[in-house]
Every structure is written in structure tokens, then in C-alpha cells.
Nucleic acid binder design. Structure first.
Length: 646
DNA sequence: GCAAGGTC
């Protein structure tokens, strides 16, 4: 039998793929330990597939050996001696030689791949079908082919996005080759990020860490800095906010059907900033004495069920509903995934493939303590709906769903219980019907001014039933009376009010995640870690659900801004992303992009060094005095109300 | 002691 080595990006995919191989071949999966504790080796014999080495070959029995890696196996760093901080000028880091080394954690894994490669005639790369996956595939190819030179011409790439039998069959019949353009795009990104990050980080740290007694390195990175930028920008808007007085008219009507209830209306002009004008309108309204009904508009309205859950949305909703920090959410999700309770938690996909057995996934919950009743209503009462599609698809992972039914009380900690509950409720909500309601809009006119009241009556809760208490459909003021057009009445209240515009709040975690997502800062898998980084570096602090920049964070952003560099803005990263995409599509070469971006950033770096007095000034402004014992003491102690240190 | 991207 021809011996094929197959490698997946993570153990769970290796396991699932070997399961499919066994279904295809009707033979069992042999599950062996490898050198690497987490990466098992699965063997399935007699898998009937065409030989990829020959054109139009007839299917024949193959021995499939399947194992996995765990993300990138190797990384780049500066070659000695420049990995030491004082070995070279910081500006030399833009050109200093680099080397690729295997992550020391993965030496066992590397040996495992080498040993397996020696036994194989063909290598099939089953890494995730995204850009990073292509780069990891190249790392696997490099290790395997170094161990077994004969393998080189017989390396193939499998294209798949979900581990479903039909798709895997298709992939096996259409094995392709590695796409080096995508690999180049990733390698360009790696090199650029390292050089820029290291140069600025060493420069900032050496200049300010000791001087101001700062606790950690003062890192710079193309993702962490824009993340900080969003928080600082919001702070600046609050700082410069000037409140404005506004005026409005409050209008209330007694409900003819239940006289104790007053229906409140919204002024069509909402609010005016001109006092004289607003007051004149109010007077003319008063003089009219009676209001007249312009019309009652009733219509059916649906509140749409949510779309399938992807990572960013999971983080936002966990923050909103359970007040979990994104990092905590991801940590809990990872544990739930490892324990087999939920599917893979890092995905951008909001669409289920047509072959995906969504109904079967609901079936899993039929006997669940808490949600079994709801699941049965979906399945047995014809309420089940195929989920509607969201917008995104990463072609690598399906949306996040629960895969095992459990009473959340049995899960080991609160965060896991909350994330599991959210994932499950969200999934069941996706498979439900939209909520239905009746909206009434009552509009009246008094003098020259118009007012409207809105009312809502929910007629069918459907998905909102399972999504309690996360979302409500704000019933506002229930159903409104149906009043004939032209009916005249005296308002129950007519009040002139003034108010004052308020500054925005500090940036919440939900807003920060949204900004990062929108501006392509980080990925589904890294957004949470960037948010953690700017806290670890003490650039921001979290108060409740909101982020406030520290003086260090503000000084950095202000300093670079004062030189005319908007390093805190997301477009630098976005531009580099676009260039990497061009490498992947073949419009630019890796060499050109790296040279281009680094030339520009080195120029920027040299100018920063030249105008460093501006950065110094920003630090001096925010760190009022040079660090002395008093400041250090203040850092460690807070002030008691008696005035002494606590 | 540096980045960001994978993942355990």
C-alpha cells in the first residue's frame, strides 16, 4: 500500500479527518501516541483514492497516516549578536540579518514529523486554508523534506474548509500544490513586524524606562499601537468636549383606554440649540390649546434572529451580556473547545455550508436540562429554521456551535459556564424563527409642531425566548390606542425642557473590539491579546467596562503626533495588509514590499531619533517631575484619607 | 527584555 503522511494544523482537525478517512474506507482508526504529547498519530488503512502523483489514475488503496502540528512551528529572530539589545544601533535592525528557528517547545513535534516523513512516499498538507495555514504548510514541508529528500516532488496541498465527508472526498480527488505567493505574503508580514517592532521598542525602552521608573518594556507594535490609539483618541474627545445647552418640548397624552397611563411623544425636531427659536415654537404650541391626530400607522414588524456566531461577535456579546474581558472569553472558549463542549472558537465564518447538519446539532440538545425543552420545540413543532447567512466566511472553519450537551453547572468555572451558555443560546436562536410584533406610530400636530409616539406589542417571541435575558425587544410603551385621524384632544403634559449635551464615555471593550475589527487591526485570534498587551504595558487601565489611557499611553501618542507621525492611526497597518494581499495575488513581490515598507519606516525612525526632543517633551508634560523616590513611592502606595500612604 | 501570527 502506498504510504501517505497527512499533516493538519491542530490535533482536533487531525482527529476529525482520520474519522472521515475511516468512514470512507470502512476501516478503523488506529490511534497512537507520538513524541509530542498533544499531537497523536492516526492511521487508517485501505483508503481508496487516486494516486496524486499520476494524472487520471484509478483509485487505489492507500495507507493514510495523519498527524498534526499546533500552529507555526518556527519563527524568525535577529541573528546573534543582534538579538542582544546593545549589540547594534536600533536603526540597524531594519537590515540586520534574520534567522528562522524552531520554537523550542516544538522540538519533539519536529522529530515526530521527521520520523513520519521518513516512512512516507507522499506528503499531503491539510493545514487551514488561509494565508497563515499556507505558511505553516511550508514549514511542515521544509521539515519533512529535509528528513526525506525523496518526498520533495510528492508534496500536495489539500483544499478544504470544513471537515465534512463530501468536502474531504473532493479535496482528496483534487490535491494541488503549495501556493508560494501566500507563503511569501506571510513571511513579508513577519519580517516587517519584527524589524519595526524591535527597533521602536528598544529605542523607547532604553530612552524612558529607567528615566521614569517604568515597570515593563515600552513596546511598540503595528497592532498594539493603533489599539492604544483608539483609546487615546476617545480620551482626547472627552478632554476637548464642550457641552452645549439644548431645548426640547415634552408632549404627553392621556391614554383614552386607560386614563391612568400617559403616552409620551417625541418632538419631530428632537432638540434645538437656539433658545429664542425653541421658546417661540413652544409658545405657539401652547397657544394652539388642542392637538390633532394626523394618523395612526400600524404595521407588522420582525426582529431578526442573529446570524451564526464568529469569534469577534462572541467576544463582543460576552462582554456585553456577561461583562467578560475578551481575553477571559477566549481563554474559556479555548478550554471548552479542548474539552469537546464547543467547536473551534477562532473563526470568521458566519455561514453554515449546505452540507452542514445544523438540525443534527440541535438534536444534541434534545435532553438538555435547561434548553432541552426549547430544542424539542424547534425539532418537533416545526419551528426549526435553517440559520440565515451572515456576511463573513474565512473558508477555514465553520461558525462556533456547541457540540456537546451538558448542564452548565457542571462546568469548572463561571467564565466557561457563561461562554457555553452564550454559545448554546446563540446557536439555538440562529435556528429559530424571527420574533414578530406589531408596531404602532401615532402622530399628532399641535400648532406648527408635530409629535410622534411609538408603541410595540410583541406577538411571537420565538428566538427571543431562548435568548433571554441577553436581548429584549424594547416594548417601549406597549400598544397604542387607535385614534381616528382628525381627533382633537388636550395634551396631558406640554413642557419646555433644557438639557446639556454630554461627552462620550471612555472606550468600552465592545467598541474597541469593533474598531479593531473594522480597521483590520489584528485577527479573530489576536484581537484579545492586543487588548491585553496595552494593559500589561500600562498604556491603558480598565475601569469597569471602559478603558482609560495612562499618562504613559497619552505621552507616547502625543509625542509621535507632535512630530507629524500618526503611528497611532490604523491606516499604516491597513496599507501594509493591502501590500501583503498584493503579494498573495501575485501583483507585487515579497522582496519589493519588504524593501518598500522598511525604507519608509526606517526614514520615519531616523526622523524620530532626530526629533526626539518632541517625544521627550511629551513625556515631560505628562510625567511632571523626574522620577525620584516620591514618585516611586506613589506608584506603590495609594493615599489614605488621613493624608498618609496606605 | 522587542512584533504578530498560529496554537496546547
Amino acid at each position: 500500500m502506498v504510504h501517505i503522511l497527512n499533516v493538519a494544523e491542530k490535533p482536533s482537525v487531525a482527529k476529525a479527518l482520520s474519522q472521515v478517512f475511516s468512514e470512507i474506507s470502512n476501516s478503523h482508526v488506529q490511534n497512537d501516541a507520538g513524541r509530542s504529547t498533544y499531537n497523536r498519530i492516526f492511521t487508517v488503512n485501505n483508503v481508496n483514492i487516486p494516486d496524486p502523483r499520476q494524472r487520471n489514475s484509478q483509485p487505489q488503496h492507500m495507507k493514510m497516516v495523519m498527524t498534526s502540528v499546533a500552529g507555526h512551528i518556527s519563527g524568525i529572530d535577529f541573528k546573534a549578536p543582534n538579538n542582544k539589545w546593545s549589540a547594534c544601533l536600533d536603526s540597524d535592525l531594519f537590515t540586520a540579518p534574520l534567522e528562522r528557528t524552531v520554537n523550542p517547545l516544538f522540538l519533539d513535534l519536529k522529530r515526530q514529523l521527521e520520523e513520519q516523513a521518513k516512512k512516507a512516499e507522499i506528503l499531503v498538507l491539510w493545514l487551514d486554508c488561509d494565508r497563515e495555514g499556507e505558511a505553516i504548510a511550508e514549514e511542515v514541508q521544509e521539515i519533512c523534506c529535509s528528513a526525506n529528500r525523496r518526498l520533495k516532488p510528492h508534496v500536495f496541498r489539500a483544499k478544504f474548509s470544513t471537515v465534512l465527508q463530501g468536502e474531504i472526498r473532493r479535496a482528496l480527488n483534487n490535491l494541488g500544490r503549495l501556493d508560494m505567493k501566500q507563503v511569501d505574503a506571510v513571511n513579508a508580514r513577519q519580517e516587517i513586524d519584527l524589524r519595526i517592532g524591535a527597533a521602536f521598542t528598544r529605542f523607547q525602552t532604553k530612552r524612558y524606562q529607567k528615566k521614569y521608573g517604568l515597570p515593563s518594556v515600552i513596546s511598540y507594535g503595528p497592532c498594539q499601537f493603533p489599539t492604544l490609539g483608539f483609546v487615546v483618541e476617545r480620551w482626547a474627545r472627552i478632554e476637548t468636549f464642550i457641552p452645549e445647552q439644548f431645548f426640547t418640548i415634552k408632549f404627553g397624552m392621556k391614554d383614552p383606554d386607560s386614563p391612568n397611563r400617559e403616552i409620551s411623544f417625541q418632538w419631530k425636531r428632537n432638540r434645538l440649540f437656539d433658545h429664542v427659536c425653541a421658546l417661540a415654537l413652544y409658545r405657539s404650541t401652547l397657544q394652539a390649546r388642542k392637538a390633532r391626530v394626523l394618523g395612526t400607522d400600524g404595521r407588522n414588524q420582525n426582529k431578526w434572529r442573529p446570524t451564526p456566531l464568529a469569534t469577534v461577535e462572541l467576544q463582543k456579546r460576552a462582554s456585553k451580556y456577561h461583562r467578560l474581558a475578551s481575553e477571559v472569553t477566549m481563554d474559556a472558549a479555548e478550554k471548552l473547545y479542548q474539552a469537546g463542549y464547543i467547536s473551534y472558537p477562532r473563526t470568521e465564518t458566519e455561514i453554515f455550508k449546505p452540507e452542514f447538519d445544523v438540525r443534527g446539532a440541535v438534536e444534541v440538545f434534545r435532553n438538555n436540562n435547561l434548553w432541552g425543552g426549547y430544542a424539542r420545540t424547534l425539532l418537533d413543532n416545526g419551528k426549526f429554521q435553517q440559520p440565515r447567512n451572515g456576511r463573513n466566511d474565512d473558508n477555514a472553519h465553520p461558525p462556533i456551535i456547541p457540540v456537546k450537551s451538558v448542564d452548565p453547572a457542571e462546568l469548572p468555572d463561571v467564565a466557561q459556564r457563561q461562554v457555553y451558555e452564550l454559545v448554546t443560546k446563540h446557536f439555538l436562536a440562529c435556528c429559530s424563527m424571527d420574533a414578530k410584533g406589531q408596531q404602532t406610530v401615532l402622530s399628532v400636530k399641535m400648532g406648527t409642531e408635530e409629535f410622534t409616539a411609538k408603541g410595540l406589542m410583541v406577538t411571537e417571541y420565538n428566538w427571543l425566548e431562548i435568548y433571554k435575558p441577553y436581548e429584549r425587544w424594547s416594548a417601549g410603551q406597549g400598544i397604542l390606542p387607535n385614534m381616528g385621524t382628525g381627533t382633537e384632544f388636550e395634551p396631558a403634559s406640554l413642557i419646555f425642557e433644557s438639557g446639556s449635551t454630554a461627552p462620550p464615555s471612555f472606550m468600552s471593550e465592545v467598541e474597541l473590539i469593533s474598531e479593531m475589527d473594522k480597521n483590520k487591526i489584528g485577527t479573530d485570534a489576536t484581537i484579545a491579546s492586543h487588548i491585553k498587551t496595552i494593559q500589561d504595558r500600562e498604556y491603558v487601565v480598565k475601569e469597569g467596562q471602559h478603558f482609560k489611557p495612562t499618562k504613559l499611553g497619552i505621552a507616547l501618542v502625543e509625542g509621535y503626533n507632535s512630530m507629524g507621525y500618526q503611528l497611532n492611526k490604523p491606516h499604516l497597518r491597513a496599507k501594509m495588509e493591502r501590500q501583503c494581499n498584493q503579494i498573495a495575488s501575485g501583483n507585487l513581490t515579497k522582496t519589493n514590499v519588504i524593501a518598500d515598507v522598511l525604507r519608509e519606516m526606517k526614514e520615519c525612525f531616523i526622523k524620530v531619533e532626530g526629533e526626539v526632543n518632541k517625544l521627550d517633551a511629551a513625556f515631560a508634560r505628562h510625567f511632571s517631575s523626574v522620577v525620584d523616590q516620591a514618585v516611586l513611592v506613589k506608584r506603590a502606595f495609594s493615599e489614605c484619607k488621613c493624608g498618609r500612604s496606605m
